[in-house]
Amino acid sequence: MDELIETHPGSWILVAGPRAIRATMLTLIARLAERGPVRVLDGGNQFNAYLIARQLRGQPNLLSRISISRMFTCYQVLAALEKASELPMPLVMLDFLRTFYDESVPFHERRRLVSRCIPHLRRLSVMAGGAVSIHPPAVTSSEAETLFAILAEAAAERWIQDPPAPIQQPGRLC
């Protein structure tokens, strides 16, 4: 999967799966940095510069090609996307939905914000393409599924890795 994901100018791809796909996304960032500048927006505190440095194998100067900005609320995600200008570099958005799972924000508001983000994902991917990763929430909900559906609908391509089989709750032990 790591080698297959490619960004294409004019569109963005959705990479969905368990937290383990973080490694795939970091590999993608390292690979993109080898080719040129790359912009990373991190919605889930997933960016790890040390892991990427290891993947860049003795080319620490390539770390300077990666521009990173972290967001901790869904409002910040939208604000960061709105503020970003179109540049000739691919966009990698890590754990896009993490902040949108925050139940302290009413669901209609989260849905509105996700919808407002989508045109910006498209805009920022025009020149060099983009990749957006998402993970399922800790506890699945219909709200999370709705948010996922909005994103999946808007993505040009979808890479979906199945989560591991759910764990069966043990029976009564006493």
Partner: peptide, 10 residues
């Protein structure tokens, strides 16, 4: 609304 100012990985 303010996200982190972009910085390089380095």
């Amino acid at each position: 609304h303010q996200a982190e100012q972009p910085k390089t990985a380095l």
